[in-house]
Write a protein that binds this DNA or RNA. Structure first.
Lengths: 204, 204
DNA sequence: GTTGTAAGATACCGACCGGTAAACTAGTAA
DNA sequence: TTACTAGTTTACCGGTCGGTATCTTACAAC
């Protein structure tokens, strides 16, 4: 019954792209509508606020794009340390592509948005946090697996994962601020130091 | 000649406080004026835009507050590793105080602002970056000094400083997003791992 | 005290922003 | 073919925003 539409998805895509490129606060509903080719009346038919749309956009992007990618990179069929290494390498490469396309390194949308709006929109903050924690969990299992193989020293895997993730996001954010890939190039070797890899065990 | 006023400083203080607590994009000139107790006409007498004021506010805060603090904590009269350790400890404590006062961990203003506006205001981006780099330099000299004492392994001190700084800011930003001090508690020990401290040389 | 000047106050403008109401349109199921 | 419904369009409202022009006030030097 009734007609079908992909306006909802177009709004999500437009919102994520604009917010990622600029920032949450500076992007207006009008701008999102224009980019999506949707009239404002339709916007309010689907969503009740910008924050509401942003939540949907983040979650949809995770399900459709990010999660499959993470699942692939952190596949259990890959040796744990190699997962982490290729993850960091591919992150560098993805940001390099963005820099070429947008003229700017854009970093991690959840992290940027989370830091920006954490004092203003609780739903949006919680959504960003939730996605960040899902990512930390990939790190954690990889670290746990590496420890089981004796490739990494003892210590709480969750704590190590959080630490590695802080290093990762911190580097990514700095790369964004300075629009310089350098911060991502040195990341793999820095990560190995943080994790305390046993030099004699890195090669199987 | 003419009358004197501290309206300029009041505007800087109000701007920094509001932007730090909320975000750059969401804070209006009207709001800053109201908080500072300054009429908008006067605002435009002193500054030509919000970005202009923000640049002045960041720089003034650095000179008046941050720099003296960093100079003290990273004083050459203190052993290098102790500088870093007390820096991280005091950062934790300062953020704990903020959490009590504001109900929120606010993190590092330069980092938050930098990440938010880097694609929108080049002057403001450059200012934030400049201050961040000044902070990295404190890390770098401490690391260099520690290496000279044989307390830290070899390797480019600047690279190590950037790495430590990424870990630091990444943790701080996560603490802000999740409003949880936990990310700052584990920081000292994580930092030691990143730097590759020699266990047998940590105590002089 | 007069005069020059730094600073403050007021009032206003046009643009845009978030949000709403209501009429309209295209499919779809019966 | 009709009736229903999901989606679309248009037009509008009140408020706020960035920005400006103008008049006034306080002070300091002479």
């Amino acid at each position: 019954m009734g007609r079908k539409s992909d306006a909802k998805e177009r709004l999500q895509d437009a919102a994520l792209e604009l917010i990622w490129e600029r920032s949450y606060g500076v992007v207006t509903i009008d701008a999102i509508c224009e980019k999506a080719g949707v009239k404002k009346g339709s916007f309010y038919y689907f969503y009740e606020s910008k924050a509401d749309l942003a939540v949907a956009a983040l979650e949809a992007d995770w399900q459709a794009n990010a999660k499959p990618w993470w699942d692939n990179v952190f596949s259990a069929s890959v040796p744990p340390m190699e997962r982490i290494r290729t993850f960091l390498q591919m992150t560098h490469d993805k940001q390099a592509v963005m820099q070429k396309e947008h003229g700017q390194i854009l970093g991690c949308p959840c992290f940027s948005i989370g830091s920006e709006i954490c004092t203003q929109s609780e739903v949006l903050r919680a959504t960003a946090q939730e996605i960040l924690q899902r990512q930390i969990r990939y790190f954690e299992t990889a670290i746990r697996d590496a420890q089981a193989r004796g490739e990494i020293g003892e210590g709480d895997p969750n704590a190590k994962a959080k630490c590695l993730y802080a290093l990762f996001e911190g580097s990514l954010a700095q790369a964004r601020i300075q629009n310089d890939l350098e911060f991502l190039r040195t990341l793999p070797s820095s990560a190995m130091e943080v994790l305390g890899v046993r030099k004699d065990a890195t090669v199987a």
